[in-house]
Each structure stands twice: as structure tokens, then as C-alpha cells.
């Protein structure tokens, strides 16, 4: 059970107010999507949840306790880019997460512990549909497969909170559909509270239990920087998705392959990078 409380959080850089009066209670196992126009501070907000930045005012609590001042293993993250380590193979990337956890000062595992960790890592890779690619380097993977790897690497540490910073924004539409299906499954199976930043509204409503819209309300040409973005809308997605229960939405167990309106037209079943997930 992991709740996140954001209490009257402000973020200012020098004279510029980015976010103001952000109050939010995120219940356990929710899937919150943050949407809003570019530059409205949604990524800044995520970075504060990650402790990459600290709020100027206010506080952020996880399970009632203030979050640590630096990133910790209780909050996993997948970025749009640079989420995996280019110098390690697919298996090495997932294994590294376990080695950081159990490998002690030198972050390395040996003997039985290593064999056990490799087994665990392989199971995780199978789970995200990367089985058979263990020996490849990230540069040899497609964008979608790299994000699957990033998810596997993050989730093997069993974080309580998963933070996603436009993780699927750079992917082709078909591939995005597959990875959405994977994301839904992972959210259902793992004990996760998810916060995702996205600029894609259909993605937000297609995955989340709750969609939060940030907006800079006062467009003052002289003093615009004095006002930060606030929460404009807080929408509960209906009918409710509940983690671990069958979805009330149609067709969600399958992947969405229909491209969005603005997406390039494409063949069904082509350009899909996922061979392991059931179609």
C-alpha cells in the first residue's frame, strides 16, 4: 500500500514560478497521468517526486513520510531516453539492478547468488517480452524494446512507486499499443502506484485511473512568470479501472493497434516489436 501526498507544493526558479499550490492525494495502486501543454511544469513535478529537484515550498509524502532528499530505490523511473545503460547487455542491465541491491560495496554478485540473480533477471525479461535478446546491447534494440528493458530493470527492484516521464512518446504507434498492453499488465500484477507524464491524451485516458491536467491559468504578458501552473482538471477515469481486477473497458486486454488520428497510417501487425506478448 503506497499513497503519495503532495501538500501545497510550489516550485520557483529565481523569479520564475513554475508550479504553485499543488495539492494532490494519490491513493495506493492508482495510475495517475499528468497531462498539459509543453512547459507547464509536469516534468518538473515528476522530478520533484523523484527528488531530482526539491520543492521551494510544501512537502511530498509517501505513506505519510517525507520523501528522501535524493533518489531512492522505493521510487523507480523510466525516462523517454537514456533509461538503460549502453555499456551493458540486456541481461547485464537487469542484473545490474540486482547487483546494486545485493552486491555490496563493489556492486557485483558471484557464484550461487549470481546464478540466482541471473535466473530472476531472465524471468523478468521473459515477463516484458525480451526473452532471447539477453546478449544484445541496447543500441541493437528498437526504441520499444529499449523501453521494455528500462521497465524490466526498474521493476526488478520492486519499487513502490513507478514514475514515467513520457516513456512511450518517441515510439511508433503500433509499438506503443503493444507496450501500453504490457504497461497495463504490469500495473495489474505488481504492487505499484504509477505516476506518468505524457502529452498524449489518448494514452492518458487509455492507461490511467486518474488524469491530472496542469495549466498556467493567467497569461499575463508582463508578469507571466509570476504565476505558476496549477492543477486545472482532476478527472477520474470512468468506468473505474482497479488494479488487479478485470478492466471494465473493452478490448484492453488486447493491444491497441489502431493508429491515432495524427499518426502515420500503417499495416496491421507490421512494425510490432513484440513477439512474446499475446496479440
Amino acid at each position: 500500500m503506497t499513497t503519495i501526498s503532495i501538500r501545497n507544493v510550489w516550485k520557483e526558479y529565481d523569479e520564475r514560478v513554475v508550479l504553485e499550490r499543488i495539492n494532490l492525494e494519490i491513493e495506493s495502486r492508482a495510475f495517475v497521468a499528468l497531462v498539459g501543454p509543453s512547459g507547464c511544469g509536469k516534468t518538473t513535478f515528476l522530478r520533484m517526486l523523484l527528488s531530482e529537484e526539491s520543492p521551494t515550498r510544501g512537502e511530498i509524502l509517501i505513506d505519510g513520510k517525507p520523501i528522501a532528499g535524493e533518489p531512492t530505490a522505493e521510487r523507480g523511473v523510466v525516462f523517454q531516453r537514456y533509461s538503460v545503460f549502453p555499456h551493458l547487455t540486456v541481461l547485464g542491465n537487469v542484473l545490474l539492478a540486482l547487483e546494486f541491491e545485493k552486491g555490496g560495496c563493489f556492486a557485483r554478485l558471484f557464484g550461487t547468488a549470481r546464478r540466482k540473480a541471473i535466473e530472476e533477471a531472465r524471468a523478468m525479461l521473459d515477463c516484458v517480452g525480451l526473452g532471447g535478446n539477453e546478449k544484445k546491447y541496447p543500441a541493437q534494440l528498437s526504441g520499444g524494446m529499449q523501453q521494455r528493458l528500462a521497465l524490466a530493470q526498474t521493476l526488478i527492484r520492486k519499487p513502490k512507486v513507478l514514475l514515467l516521464d513520457e516513456p512511450f512518446g518517441a515510439l511508433d504507434p503500433g509499438i506503443r499499443g503493444d507496450i501500453h498492453a504490457l504497461m497495463r499488465r504490469l500495473w495489474n500484477e505488481e504492487e505499484l502506484t504509477v505516476v506518468m507524464v505524457t502529452h498524449d491524451l489518448s494514452e492518458a485516458f487509455g492507461l490511467a485511473t486518474r488524469v491530472i491536467a496542469f495549466e498556467r491559468p493567467r497569461l499575463d504578458p508582463v508578469d507571466g512568470d509570476r504565476y505558476g501552473a496549477v492543477i486545472k482538471d482532476d478527472i477520474e477515469v470512468w468506468p473505474r479501472r482497479i488494479a488487479g481486477q478485470p478492466s471494465p473497458h473493452r478490448d484492453e486486454t488486447k493491444s491497441i493497434t489502431a493508429p491515432g488520428r495524427d499518426d502515420p497510417a500503417q499495416d496491421q501487425g507490421q512494425a510490432r516489436d513484440d513477439l512474446a506478448l499475446p496479440a
Partner: peptide, 10 residues
Amino acid sequence: QQLIKAQTLG
């Protein structure tokens, strides 16, 4: 991002 990611892996 790599450094942040590593930190979130503990």
C-alpha cells in the same frame, strides 16, 4: 538520467 536511474536502483 543514467545517474538518476542508477540511484533509483539503489
